[in-house]
């Protein structure tokens, strides 16, 4: 459904834009029909940048993003509008996604004006009501209210209902639950799983490994814009191969296991070699070859890792 090939995003930084920052560096992965793919990484890993490039919010530097075989960056006018009928995003902070001066259901009105000008009012109301029910909201409780009168979970679900009105096929969910409380976040997560059974594909961007495991079919682990490891969620979680993935798995706070005594404590960063493995600066297994960039190599079917010492680390 969505294919990302060698995607890169380079920002110019420094006083006169003299330096380059590779926010996303030659990333390739695919999202198939009815699949939830989670994009996992720490801050600065480029996970949100990828989401924004898919949604066309920022231009890409090189590589390709194709949706059902068409390259998205070349879309213009009506073709682009058709694209947004099928692909939508929901973001981290539900409170700042709304204009506080207007009522929250204005987002539905805008969708109607933009995409469905010919639909009758009563038919539209019914459509809105169905979308709200699909995300588990009671229309009476949320329509005609201002954003400050609704909770974060309700606002987040309203945004998903807005996306559903468009009969979308692909949803970019960028940290949608990190702002929500524990008691409501699981409901939003279950909602994503339900949407999948309605035929949606979802790119689930998160920093939380447990949430990624709970919901996704495929996982992609990112570090500083490079893919470290990707594959089916089960394989990655049961048998993490990359040193970075292992470090992540070990340091995630869990409810069923106490931390092992950490050896990762404030490791001095090693000098970075341009073009080498991005994780070399923190990796405990680093050796000379890490100055070259390792390629993603498939270890078993549906499980690839980018590490020179992949065969030794077992």
């Amino acid at each position: 459904m969505l294919k990302i090939d060698n995607l890169s995003k380079i920002y110019r930084v420094g006083t006169f834009g003299g330096q380059e920052l590779h926010a996303v560096d030659q990333v390739s992965f695919e999202v198939e029909d009815r699949q939830i793919v989670s994009l996992i990484g720490e801050s600065g890993s480029g996970k949100s940048t990828i989401g924004k490039m898919i949604l066309g919010l920022i231009p890409k530097s090189s590589g390709s993003i194709s949706f059902n075989g068409t390259e998205t960056s070349s879309l213009k006018n009506s073709a682009l509008k058709e694209y947004y009928r099928k692909v939508q995003g929901v973001f981290q902070d539900p409170f700042s996604s709304y204009n506080p001066i207007f009522k929250a259901d204005r987002v539905f009105k805008l969708i109607r004006e933009e995409f469905f000008p010919s639909v009758e009012a009563c038919e539209w109301d019914e459509k809105v009501e169905n979308a709200l029910k699909a995300v588990g909201l009671n229309p009476e409780n949320v329509l005609n209210k201002f954003p400050h009168q609704l909770s974060g979970g309700q606002l987040q679900r309203l945004l998903m209902a807005r996306a559903l009105l468009l009969d979308i096929k692909f949803l970019v969910a960028d940290e949608v639950i990190s702002m929500l409380d524990a008691s409501t976040r699981i409901d939003v997560l279950n909602l994503l799983a339900d949407l999948k059974s309605r035929g949606l594909s979802i790119l689930f961007i998160t920093h939380d490994l447990c949430l990624g495991y709970y919901i996704s079919d495929q996982s992609v682990i990112l570090y500083k814009g490079h893919i470290m490891e990707k594959g089916t969620t089960e394989k990655i979680y049961s048998n993490p191969l990359h040193p970075y993935t292992r470090m992540l798995m070990a340091s995630v706070p869990r409810l069923d296991k106490k931390w092992e005594p950490a050896d990762v404590k404030w490791k001095d960063e090693q000098p970075k070699h341009k073009g080498g493995c991005a994780y070399a600066e923190r990796c405990p297994f680093v050796f000379d070859k890490c100055r070259e960039r390792p390629l993603l190599v498939e270890i078993t079917k549906g499980h690839s890792v980018a590490c020179w010492r992949r065969s030794e680390i077992r």
Partner: peptide, 12 residues
């Protein structure tokens, strides 16, 4: 509250 927290190894 405790039961609503996803533990690792739990899938929907």
């Amino acid at each position: 509250l405790i039961s609503s927290l996803p533990k690792s190894g739990v899938k929907y």
